[in-house]
Design a protein around this nucleic acid. Structure first.
Lengths: 168, 168
DNA sequence: CGAGCTAAGTCTTGTTACGCAACCCTCCTC
DNA sequence: GAGGAGGGTTGCGTAACAAGACTTAGCTCG
């Protein structure tokens, strides 16, 4: 009937909406490659070992969603480069947070395979996720959720929703 | 021949290793639900509208990977609750970073559907990803990558790898 | 002048992962 | 003894995915 996963794009949840775009195995890795400096189709393909048709599909989606732009750098024959947009560049903190989690929980005794260097302060460092108000680390235990301005009116009355946001 | 996506679990990259676990549409949403307080199978199922067999599969994977634990809270008949482990709780910053990106780039004019409240400082706030050394925001343009202690020796000699890490 | 190479895909084919709905089992309550 | 909650499993169909061959168009080497 509808074997394809339903779209999350209109859910009242930024996690769902984001996952709707990057919620597959390859897309995050393509973005990582882009942050590493890859620009060309074959470069992505060789570095990741992704099937070419899958790469075509993912790049098209990233372009459609505005995270990347396709630049023509030569017209006869047409040759393209894929560049991150501002929206795409702004995804870096997410990958940095993922890297931090993976370094901590999935690296063996050898330690992290790759480390980050913050050029501004010239230190090897890792990403930390902090509260924008006080700068302290944001942990789940210290954080609660509240209804935002964009929450749909018609859902607010539902008892399960009420319960969910009761902690305000 | 091998239509299934290859495993990223042994790639020398924490993003790849993490995506190997959570790199599908549902897993991140299940974790979000867990942070919202869901514990039971039917609770996850109803809140997300996920197919039951898919949920079974994802919960099993999360348990196998150590992000959740299955607790027996009643033995006749057996009833279970799924609880986040420390490893699972530590994933919250990733979801907070994703939420921040989604709030900024995917919310309409109405604004974010859900806002975070940091109970420690008692402010509505959002997540910020900062450098662990200097506390400044971590942007892709200010950050470079270096070989970490866990990077496999045999790969270091490859010219494409050398080029990738040349910026140190 | 033809062979081969590069870039960026497209096409074909086959398998598998995923979603849906229906069903199952056990205990509990009315 | 009917119905409901809890926690799944089974069967079925579709669509996502991977592999690899093919395409087009120009350039280069001999």
């Amino acid at each position: 009937m509808s074997p394809a996963r339903p779209s999350f794009a209109n859910w009242p949840c930024s996690v769902a909406r984001t996952v709707d775009i990057i919620g597959d195995a390859w897309t995050s890795l393509i973005l990582r490659e882009a942050f590493y400096g890859s620009r060309r189709f074959d470069e992505f393909q060789q570095q990741l070992g992704i099937a070419r048709n899958t790469l075509t599909d993912r790049l098209r989606r990233l372009v459609d969603e505005g995270l990347m732009e396709k630049w023509l750098y030569e017209s006869e024959p047409p040759r393209h480069e894929y560049h991150l947009t501002e929206k795409g560049h702004d995804f870096f903190p997410v990958l940095a947070a993922i890297t931090r989690w993976g370094d901590r929980w999935l690296a063996g005794e050898e330690g992290a395979p790759v480390t980050l260097h913050h050029d501004v302060c010239d230190h090897d460092a890792h990403a930390e996720v902090v509260c924008s108000a006080c700068g302290e680390q944001m942990r789940s235990a210290d954080t609660s959720i509240r209804l935002g301005p964009g929450y749909p009116e018609r859902l607010k009355a539902r008892p399960d929703i009420q319960r969910r946001f009761a902690g305000s």
